[in-house]
């Protein structure tokens, strides 16, 4: 029985020449036997984290440890074996193979691991009966409802009785009637010897969770007082990929906006002067900063929370600011 420990996990990739980090030094742990729910808006790195847990995406740095297994370091045959035996994946859109029956879909990972046809069939039937699909063994995905397909997907994830089960938005494509059975099954899966990690927007899962992992940190500087910061020349205010809850207005001096490229080089996007503002999109939409802000000269900036900033400039101007073309640069921050 082991805990799942994620330590300083960073995933960086090249998006049109720019370095994008959906995960930047993310750490958490999930206790054995727990159902953990990953919460956060789209783009916050939930699916990226699940991909790393599932062994289908290699992180740039950091570690994922489960018992003796260092998932992030697996390669080749060891990685394939991990995917086969140690992790089961439930996909958002079921992702059943359309040409295979329910039984075939559950048998596939077993057969890929070299399990005999008879043993794979026995296991598939047992799992499908467990998820209440004993009457649908020979049906293809197109002949089943969304809920039934998701239960087949769950059965497939459990084919090897893996100690780690991950689910990406498992209820997103289901109506409320179908959701109930899937939620109950997910809850039942979390038992000693197994961890279940679910990424979701669906707050119906929250009461069932043993642990809620917020992918976007809540900020605790919600004071109504704007925060003034003094920067020496070259001092970095925030870095690309970091998260923050402040929108900044320059009181004096200048701020350079730099974007990091995938090759490690930086590109100066703009130099902003007194009375200009920057960094509004990240706090407003819960996104990571998409550029680095650095003092071009000695500068004083005032940081506002989104609420304070709205009051500061007025709601109409805020909308204009987001829509306006010449604010495109700042809109990206």
């Amino acid at each position: 029985m082991s805990d799942l420990i994620i330590d300083e996990l960073t995933v960086e990739y090249d998006a049109g020449g720019y370095a994008v980090r959906p995960l930047d030094g993310f750490s958490t742990s999930v206790n054995d036997g727990s159902l953990a729910v990953l919460l956060g808006p789209s783009g916050c790195g939930k699916t990226t984290l699940l991909s790393c847990l599932g062994g289908i995406l290699s992180p740039t740095s950091g570690s994922i440890r489960y018992g003796e297994i260092e998932v992030a370091g697996l390669q080749g045959a060891a990685l394939t074996e991990y995917r086969q035996r140690d992790v089961g994946i439930v996909f958002q859109s079921f992702n059943l193979v359309p040409s295979l029956t329910a039984t075939g879909n559950v048998m596939a990972p077993l057969r890929a691991a070299g399990v005999t046809a008879a043993a794979a069939r026995r296991r598939a039937v047992e799992l499908l009966e467990h998820v209440g699909l004993g009457e649908r063994l020979g049906h293809r995905p197109s002949e089943m409802s969304g809920g039934q397909q998701q239960r087949v997907s769950l059965a497939r994830a459990l084919a090897h009785d893996p100690p780690i089960v991950i689910a990406d938005e498992p209820t997103a494509s289901l109506d409320y009637v179908q959701v109930e059975g899937v939620l109950r099954l997910l809850r039942d899966l979390a038992a000693p010897g197994r961890v279940v990690v679910v990424a979701t927007h669906d707050d119906r899962l929250l009461p069932l969770a043993d642990q809620i992992i917020e992918m976007v940190p809540r900020f605790h500087d919600e004071s109504s007082t704007p925060r003034t910061t003094t920067l020496a020349p070259g001092e970095v205010l925030f870095t690309q990929g970091s998260r923050g809850n402040r929108i900044f207005v320059i009181e004096s001096g200048s701020i350079e906006i730099l974007r990091e490229h995938a090759d490690g080089e930086s590109e100066l996007l703009a130099t902003l002067d007194a009375n200009e503002h920057f960094g509004e999109m990240g706090p407003l939409f819960g996104l990571p900063r998409s550029a680095t802000a650095r003092a071009g000269s000695a500068a004083v900036v005032v940081g506002y929370t989104p609420e304070q900033f709205r009051k500061h400039i007025g709601a109409e101007r805020l909308t204009d600011l987001i829509r306006h073309d010449d604010a495109a640069l700042r809109s990206n921050l």
Binding site: G54, I56, A112
Partner: peptide, 13 residues
């Protein structure tokens, strides 16, 4: 493509 991705994600070589 989706089939292959699923097969690979579920452990196929």
């Amino acid at each position: 493509v989706r089939d292959f991705a699923i097969f690979k994600a579920t452990g196929a070589g």
